[in-house]
């Protein structure tokens, strides 16, 4: 009955995850790092929904992915507040400049 096999969906989830991780590690812009986090969370979400569609887990996967979406929104709000504070203190959003605690 499967028009598209589960593995392809998981592969897209993996691409999202990997892109997110690379984004988090290489970007120096604070907001860019946030976008990487969003990508990682979306990769995980895609996997949850795929499992709820293709395995016998049923709706649980969708419920978890809804929780993830809500938590991601909350995380973005707090992280943005932090980014604004960072900008107010350093007058830039380049996270490499936040090295006052560097000994």
């Amino acid at each position: 009955m499967d028009a598209v096999s589960l593995n392809y969906v998981l592969a897209i989830g993996a691409v999202l995850f990997v892109c997110g991780v690379i984004c988090m590690t290489t970007k120096r812009n604070g907001i860019g790092i946030l976008m990487g986090v969003e990508l990682v969370l979306n990769g995980a979400n895609l996997n949850f929904v795929a499992f709820s569609r293709y395995t016998s887990l049923g709706l649980d996967g969708q419920v978890v992915s809804l929780f993830v979406i809500v938590l991601a929104a909350a995380e973005a709000a707090v992280a943005l507040a932090i980014a604004l504070n960072f900008y107010n203190n350093h007058l830039t959003i380049d996270v490499d400049r936040g090295d006052e605690l560097h000994g």
């Binding site: 598209v4 979306n42 979400n45 795929a50 569609r53 969708q62 992915s65 809804l66 979406i69």
Partner: peptide
């Protein structure tokens, strides 16, 4: 496409 319409709508609205 994975017939999770509510999650899809939430993704559009919230994300």
């Amino acid at each position: 496409l994975l017939s999770a319409d509510f999650v899809g709508a939430t993704q559009l609205m919230v994300y």
